[in-house]
């Protein structure tokens, strides 16, 4: 599979503020490849450089050293900047900061309109994008009539209508309630299944567990990388970085501590459910079980 994004040894610092500015760069000699169609979760403590990295991926920020290539295009090439941004779309944290229009469907049309797409084609793309995030029935509503999760879905539709092949989500669920969060994660997983490349920045490990690969950043560098299973296996290191494990892993650990034998490859609640199923296959209900000897 070919790489849609190649990050090669990039370093980035924010301009210094007056006094005691951080001397340390935000990103330090960081390299990362993202394959076409891959779902990558980026996690790490605050200040580890997650959002800065995300902004380097579609030329919102340019690295001081090293380079970022999107579908073979160097982000430092100003002539390519719009091509790059139409390839890599971004969804940010605050749903209220991303909608520009007073009608949902106009908002989704904003991107393609700006790209000079033919009106009939815009209509088709807007309808398709709104259907993909399950917001088609709300297309005539105003953003103020929507819940946070619905607003985020409209923001996602806006990126979809640009037909970006890669979508970057910078903590898209941080300001949502649990049901809003579930809506957004379902949409993200759907888009991934349909072949979009997904980069998800999140503090919620349950969300990261759904990715193909997790990248852990710390102090602007890659601290760990691997499948969810590989990353979550290194609990001590995660705890050191104050990252919390997904619930299913915590529960599995506590069960193991109580002498229950469980396989090592438990990441999601479904895994744990299946493991408990195989432990109890053929056994009667716990309450009714006859103690044997």
């Amino acid at each position: 599979m070919e790489n849609i994004i190649e990050v090669k040894n990039i370093t980035f610092s924010y301009p210094e503020s007056e006094e005691d500015a951080p001397a340390e760069p935000t990103l330090k000699d960081l390299s990362l490849d993202i394959r076409n169609g891959e779902f990558v979760a980026i996690v790490g403590p605050n200040g580890s450089g997650k959002s800065t990295l995300a902004k380097c991926l579609n030329a919102l920020l340019l690295p001081e050293e090293g380079k970022v290539c999107v579908a073979g295009m160097d982000t430092s090439d100003e002539d390519l900047i719009w091509k790059i941004r139409s390839q890599v779309g971004m969804v940010f944290q605050n749903p209220d900061n991303q909608l520009v229009s007073s009608v949902v469907e106009d908002d989704v049309a904003f991107g393609p309109e700006n790209l000079g797409v033919d009106p009939a084609e815009i209509r088709r793309r807007v309808d398709e994008a709104l259907k993909a995030v399950n917001m088609y029935d709300n297309r005539r509503k105003g953003p103020h009539q929507l819940s946070g999760g619905q607003k985020q879905r409209v923001a996602i539709a806006g990126v979809l209508a640009m037909q970006s092949s890669c979508m970057i989500f910078d903590e898209p669920t941080a300001m949502l309630d649990p049901s809003g969060r579930a809506e957004i994660i379902d949409v993200i997983c759907d888009l991934h299944r349909q072949g979009k490349t997904i980069v998800l920045i999140t503090h919620f490990m349950e969300e990261a567990a759904k990715a193909d690969r997790i990248v852990v950043l710390k102090d602007g560098q890659l601290a760990m990388e691997g499948t969810p299973l590989e990353v979550f296996a290194r609990e001590d290191r995660l705890r050191e970085m104050k990252l919390v494990l997904p619930f299913a892993i915590e529960l599995a650990d506590q069960l193991k501590a109580r002498g229950i034998e469980l396989p090592k490859d438990i990441v999601t609640e479904e895994d744990l459910m299946a493991a408990l199923e195989s432990l109890t296959a053929g056994r009667k209900t716990a309450g009714e079980a006859v103690p044997c000897a």
Partner: peptide
């Protein structure tokens, strides 16, 4: 097997309940 499991609100309580049910038989 777990149909009569008591409700649990925390991870510790859930582990306790599940372990109790599993080990009860032995």
């Amino acid at each position: 097997f777990f149909s009569s499991l008591s409700p649990a609100l925390t991870t510790e309580a859930a582990a306790e309940e599940i372990a109790k049910a599993l080990q009860g038989k032995f």
